[in-house]
């Protein structure tokens, strides 16, 4: 006889409920016909329609994506270079200081980073007249400074794992150091660079704190828009927007899962191939 582990199952149910009931209820209420977020007034998709016709949301989403794209790309370039420098060049003047400065944003409270970026931009505007206005450029720069560290950390970890000898082998076969970086190092760490970029992109996309300090008139990103709307009370169109975002993320995760499963299956097939080739 197998006894049903009632206790374990209820713990599991509670855990899932804790995580997902808020999201589910939000999704359900996005189909609420009532204007009040907490009172059910029948099924309706009108808030989705309202969302579609709201140009403010579309603009904010576009701005967020633009900032995320540019800042994550810049952060990836700088972060990769910093990671390579920290792993491959173990002796240079100021290495410890550099290493500390690169990782500082990880432990710095976001409010501090935001305030200091704001003060910096104000001072800079006073000295050289740039940036005259805060907006896309200032937000992007601020995002680069705090998302770069994630790329550096991932690249650093990947480089520490990889065999230094393959770079030496390329050099030994006649390639100069810059060529080795291009031919060998970058292709080998490319998965790490890609995941660093994705992380930087995600972080930039949903940042509120630092963005709110470095933004200016007319530059409202999606998280800022949601934040400002919610301050005036949760409306069902926000529920609809959030539901769409959850679906987009869920779809992304599902696609990534399928791709990874395929890659794993291919790897196993390769291993079998190598095993047959043994000897």
């Amino acid at each position: 006889m197998t006894r049903r582990p009632t206790f374990l199952l209820s713990v599991l149910a509670f855990g899932f409920a804790f995580f997902y009931v808020p999201i589910l209820s939000m999704m359900v209420y996005s189909f609420n016909a009532s204007r009040l977020a907490t009172v059910w007034g029948g099924f309706s998709t009108k808030w989705y329609g309202a969302l579609m016709s709201n140009s403010q949301v579309g603009e904010a989403l576009l701005l967020s994506l633009k900032i995320a794209l540019v800042s994550s790309t810049l952060a990836t370039i700088l972060g990769t270079l910093a990671g390579i420098a920290l792993v491959r060049f173990t002796k240079f003047r100021g290495r410890t200081l550099f290493s500390g400065l690169v990782t500082a944003p990880l432990i710095m409270p976001e409010v501090i980073t935001g305030v200091s970026a704001l003060i910096f931009f104000l001072l800079l505007a006073g000295w050289i007249g740039w940036p005259a206005q805060r907006g896309f450029t200032t937000i992007t720069l601020a995002h680069v400074t705090f998302s770069m560290v994630f790329v550096t950390t991932i690249v650093q970890a990947r480089l520490l794992q990889s065999d230094r000898a393959i770079e030496e082998a390329a050099m030994d076969l006649g390639t100069r150091p810059w060529g080795v970086l291009w031919d060998i190092t970058l292709p080998v760490i490319s998965p790490a660079i890609l995941s660093g970029w994705l992380l930087a992109f995600t972080i930039s996309l949903d940042d509120v704190v630092i963005t709110s300090f470095t933004t200016g008139p007319g530059s409202t990103t999606l998280p800022l828009l949601i934040w400002s709307k919610v301050k005036l009370g949760v409306t069902p169109d926000i529920n609809a927007l959030a539901t769409l975002m959850v679906l987009a993320v869920g779809l992304g995760v599902a696609v990534a899962g399928v791709v990874m499963n395929r890659a794993e299956a291919r790897r196993l097939a390769d291993e079998r191939l190598a095993y047959r080739a043994q000897g």
Binding site: D163, A165, I166, E168, A169, A170, I184, P187, V188
Partner: peptide
């Protein structure tokens, strides 16, 4: 090289 250091990609 001892590890052969083949280019994995």
């Amino acid at each position: 090289f001892q590890s052969y250091a083949l280019f994995p990609h």
